[in-house]
């Protein structure tokens, strides 16, 4: 179980990095972490309604753990703060946490 979880986490990190690198070339880089985090919360909500002992659920649980990130998100918030873009900083914070909870609930409803 531990190895399935950490394998999923590695895949999650790789997917996050690939999406971020890809979106950066499309000038959407500033939304990459937000997209990743909200998508991860949606999958997380779906997992709440799935048998938690199935290999599939464990792999996805590991995946979203590595896929979503709190450190990069807060680093980006701090970056906006230092650029004195306070409105954008607060907006990003609110959309992330509010959207994350909503996405999680939506995922739960979907399954």
């Amino acid at each position: 179980m531990f190895f399935t979880l950490i394998f999923g986490s590695g895949l999650g990190a790789l997917s996050r990095s690939t999406i971020t690198n890809h979106l950066k070339t499309h000038r959407l880089g500033q939304f990459a972490t937000l997209c990743v985090n909200l998508l991860g919360c949606l999958i997380g909500g779906m997992l709440l309604g799935v048998n938690p002992t199935s290999l599939f659920a464990i792999l996805f649980l590991g995946f979203i753990g590595g896929f979503t990130t709190y450190s990069t998100f807060n680093g980006e918030l701090a970056g906006l703060y230092f650029q004195r873009r306070y409105g954008r900083c607060l907006g990003y914070l609110l959309v992330s946490y509010g959207g994350g909870l909503l996405a999680c609930y939506l995922g739960y409803l979907l399954i």
């Binding site: 990190a13 997380g44 990130t69 998100f73």
Partner: peptide
């Protein structure tokens, strides 16, 4: 730099985990 920043530290922390804990 990316392997540690994006990989190790990025995956050490979790955002979905916050929402699952909250749920």
């Amino acid at each position: 730099r990316k392997g540690i920043g994006v990989g190790v530290i990025g995956s050490f922390t979790t955002f979905s985990g916050i929402m699952l804990d909250s749920s």
